[in-house]
Design a binder for these strands. Structure first.
Lengths: 329, 329
DNA sequence: GGACGGATAGAAAACGATTACTGTTCGATC
DNA sequence: GATCGAACAGTAATCGTTTTCTATCCGTCC
């Protein structure tokens, strides 16, 4: 037994003849080591766990791809789990990952911040840290400093600011904001960016232009249709996600409004087909794959370096295409 | 030790007082079982492994979502691995999954059939079967009967037949086919469906209308642009994937050809945003999520039922939208 | 009142690796 | 020619559970 183990590991002198015999036996028996036994004694590199609301979203799929790639490069497997927005499921999964001895647990996607949230995250962080794992919050608010966790976020507020500034710089003054759900961190940040931009350009904020809803095509469609029908007046739309922008474009088309002739539209996410819409959608690019890669990189190196980075914010970039036009009176 | 194990498993009488003491200790120590130790003795449900070329593609993400959901419903975790089309990596992953004691290994996406392919799949099937796992080929050719593997495929040929028949029924006779790579199973089947439809409608097959390329936007764009510039003449395009259709639409728009006024277009896959293109794309819907769910279901029940199904073909459906119009002379 | 059996709890043997010890062999050194 | 150490092979402890076996206690039943 010992000799076989040493032959396969190659960390101990084994005579050429023995090595050959072992290899022959391994081949003829189709032997493969048992990870469980291996993990019980020697050290085994634990998997990286990706806990996500839903893998289907075009942007989240890119996060997953980044995670998988970086994990694979470092010899780790990737576990992917969907929560479908159920906090109880999230609790279970963190527990499960502790059992699995995951090297890192990545919680991806916006959340509703608050005391309850902070408590939950603190609990996760402590529990995982005690088990030698690492909690990483990706695109989620940071609960409190001094917790053993890593945060990898992107600049929601800045991205929204750029997008709205772009519209304002083109002369638009009445910008319909199709925002996300109230309370959700990323939605609130994008909303804050929208308001920042208005303020920076000295434009009054109109409450009825500042709408709340989900990041779905349906919601974008309904809100745009309602605004077109019942007011308020607007000459531009800032959709807090490209899916919402899709709905807005559909509603505008249906109402016979030309984009960008009559109404300008800016989205958020830069989904792959944004450039294939008519008109090609001006939107805010979020480095989703990079987000996933960074999360894994920081998590796996957090053990080594004593003073590794544990809070990173990636930048966003406005991608200018054809859905915005200067407003002329 | 025994008592703790029994208390947590709840499969043996334990006095109320002992149970309380155990639970208190578990809570105060933040104890969680070690899966590895558990797997070594008692039985543990192994994970489901999804081996895929690239998670980013909109259709593959849906397969992944289906797999994850069905696996989670059955209490399994999902491992996701990307091969980036590297056969050596595929070999490694199958080996790795054997070590991991995966309950099922799903190989997803087209492949180049042939003797080499058959031999590789046979090797995988035997090796996994010997380890108590199950190989599932999803959307891939079936190598040979009587191998311990499951095939879950969808009707590429029938879907293509429907799509092209739809165009022919609308009077089109010169249909540019933007096919996939030569040799790839799914691409060849869609090509066969294209030719079937031509034959069924008594339309001659023109070799120069029957093109080969990759399933990318770029390839669709280049081939359509070249055809517009150098011939052959065509009044309709059948793109073997929606990404290719995207490229075709871009090239047509650029050339000032109206869709569907001048040229009709049909795609394949029904990606989520197909309905948001201008015009909304008529395309063939493939039940990707269902494919993933079915694969997991069959794999996990293959052990139980002695005569379970081990070869399933799911149907496809033509989704008629606005990118096809009757050809008038 | 002793035999029997149900309810509990502990002891010990797996599960399949890794690795610190022990041994053995054999060439080199003084 | 005895000693030493390098090269290699085998023994046994260990990792953390689960699951037989045993063992104890006690109430029941004749």
């Amino acid at each position: 037994m010992a000799t076989v183990s040493r032959t396969l590991a190659g960390n101990y002198p084994v005579s050429e003849e023995t090595r050959t015999r072992v290899m022959a036996a391994v081949a003829s028996l189709h032997y493969v080591v048992n990870v469980h036994a291996k993990a019980l004694s020697g050290r085994v590199a634990g998997p990286v766990a990706l806990v996500i609301k839903d893998i289907t979203g075009p942007s989240l799929a890119h996060v997953a791809a980044g995670v998988e790639q970086e994990a694979a490069d470092r010899g780790r497997l990737s576990l992917v789990c969907a929560t479908h927005d159920d906090p109880a499921r999230e609790d279970d999964l963190v527990q499960l990952m502790r059992e699995q001895h995951a090297a890192a647990v990545l919680l991806v996607g916006g959340a509703v911040p608050g005391e309850a949230y902070d408590r939950r995250m603190a609990g996760y962080a402590e529990a995982l840290d005690a088990a030698g794992s690492r909690l990483v919050l990706v695109g989620r608010p940071s609960p409190a400093p001094d917790l053993p966790l890593t945060v990898v976020d992107y600049d929601n507020r800045g991205g929204a600011f750029q997008a709205v500034s772009h519209l304002l710089a083109h002369g638009h003054r009445r910008v319909l904001f199709l925002g996300g759900e109230a309370g959700m961190s990323s939605a609130e940040e994008r909303r804050a960016g929208y308001r920042d931009a208005l303020r920076a350009h000295g434009v009054d904020h109109h409450g009825d232009l500042d709408t709340i809803g989900t990041y779905t095509r349906t919601s974008g469609y309904a809100r745009t249709r309602d605004a077109l029908r019942d007011g308020p007046e607007f000459t531009a739309v800032f959709a807090a996600s490209d899916m919402v922008a899709l709905g807005a474009l559909a509603a505008l088309r249906e109402a016979g409004r030309d984009v960008p002739g009559d109404v300008s539209v800016v989205g958020f996410d830069d989904v792959p087909f944004a450039t294939d819409l008519t008109p090609a959608l001006t939107t805010v690019r979020v480095p989703y794959a990079e987000l996933g890669r960074t999360a894994v990189r920081l998590a796996l190196s957090s053990g080594e370096a004593p003073t590794g980075e544990d809070h990173v914010v990636l930048g966003t970039q406005l991608i200018i295409r054809q859905s915005v036009r200067r407003l002329t009176w």
